[in-house]
Write a protein that binds this DNA or RNA. Structure first.
Lengths: 232, 232
DNA sequence: TCAATAGTGTCTTTTAGACATTATATG
DNA sequence: CATATAATGTCTAAAAGACACTATTGA
């Protein structure tokens, strides 16, 4: 690591963020419009070069803030993987550390920096492909990570605002997995998993079109789920 | 990603490898002696600066070969995480991409490059701590990744040479998890998990001290296990 | 013979899943 | 009233785990 002889270079280091949310019951991804005037330039994940004195995760937060006008100081943000093929960026070697962010639907990203940003449903992604650089490789990795982590961690609660109903939580699972779930069995599993969710005693939420009011819950303390919530 | 203005730097990019094996029924880690003449210098994971034209994973393989004299062209090697805190290396900013390698016990690493390398049992790690740089943070991440992946992937078979017995495979699980398992239930689960292992018809292996000869198996085609082999 | 390891059988408990039923709201 | 969603109950099947038992070797 402290070699520093011939053949070794310094690389540009960047962060790219795959920010996922559930909007209109569909898993959606934050994309930013390219800054080049080129007409058929590709959309991309928000990404920035990392600064001298900045940690990687701070760089990830800054990329989302500067490119999509979205402040995510408390959102879930975890490292996904690092993409460093020598030829992945045509302008020179750039090693990019990708992050996965999960947020409740922020209604609308307000673009800063003069570009536009938008949420695109995963199933409509083809309309914006191909993405810039190797972002078409990063995005499936991000979605698979999210799908997989919903099985054995409590991360699903990061997609909803507190307090939430078990119906809200079920719709998160359904959107991320792309599968419909039995409400009765889902409820039993969530409630019986220790510290997954905590009921807010005596508080309920009514729905616009009728239906029995639903008990409200907050996030529990569990990080890993025992037992796991396995995909159907 | 193609910003390149003020405040952004190029960093040194390195790879560090956490190479795990099961030796003497214990989970063990490959460490290399420091190259400094300093007496109480710390042991470290094998790591190298990444070369200009080299992919990250190729750099990882090279680090193991050059620092431990171990050629692992066919071993399991997957990216673990990237460690990039601004102050993690006292000599300047180094972003390190850590890899996880799983290999059958190679009996002995033959050190090249004039340094010595050794396998250290995870439970004896305290004898070699603290490790250099932030390697004391990387190593627990590597071990937890291995423990976790044994649950829902077929990675355990990467720790044994083919052909192997179900006893060999059970000892891998026991060493990595640090728990003893019921042989009867273990066998039933492995055999009933689709494509985890394939019996080599009519081939058996005897053990030195007696005991019924064991059926030999090869790796199956499954990558993910259905159902999973959950930790006790 | 005994000790050691491989492999089978059986029983209980836990979990998953299908699906009927009841509860409480809106229109 | 009908309709919608929440919550509970019940049954069946699959899986996990404890543990007794049989099989085949070396010493």
């Amino acid at each position: 690591m402290t070699a520093g002889i011939a053949d070794v270079s310094t690389c540009a280091v960047a962060v790219d963020v795959a920010l996922l949310t559930v909007r209109d019951e569909r898993l959606s991804i934050l994309l930013v419009e390219p800054d080049t005037p080129d007409l058929d330039a590709a959309w991309a994940l928000p990404g920035r070069r990392v600064r001298d004195d900045e940690s990687l995760i701070d760089g990830a937060r800054r990329a989302v803030r500067e490119l999509a006008g979205l402040a995510i100081p408390h959102a879930w943000l975890e490292q996904l993987a690092t993409y460093g093929e020598p030829q992945r960026d045509p302008h020179g070697r750039v090693v990019s550390v990708a992050y996965l962010a999960l947020v409740p639907d922020p209604e609308d990203p307000a673009p800063g920096d003069g570009r536009s940003a938008a949420f695109v449903a995963f199933e409509d992604l083809a309309d914006h492909q191909p993405l810039a650089y190797d972002h078409d490789r990063i995005l499936p990795d991000a979605v698979e990570r999210a799908r997989s982590k919903l099985e054995y961690t409590a991360l699903a609660t990061q997609f909803v605002e507190e307090p939430f109903t078990l119906g809200d939580l079920r719709r998160v699972y359904e959107a991320v997995w792309g599968e419909s779930l039995d409400g009765a069995n889902f409820r039993r599993k969530v409630v019986s998993t220790t510290d997954f969710v905590l009921p807010v005693d005596g508080e309920f939420r009514k729905r616009p079109g009728g239906g029995r009011p639903a008990q409200l819950y907050r996030r529990g303390t569990a990080e890993r789920l025992h037992p796991a919530m396995l995909r159907p």
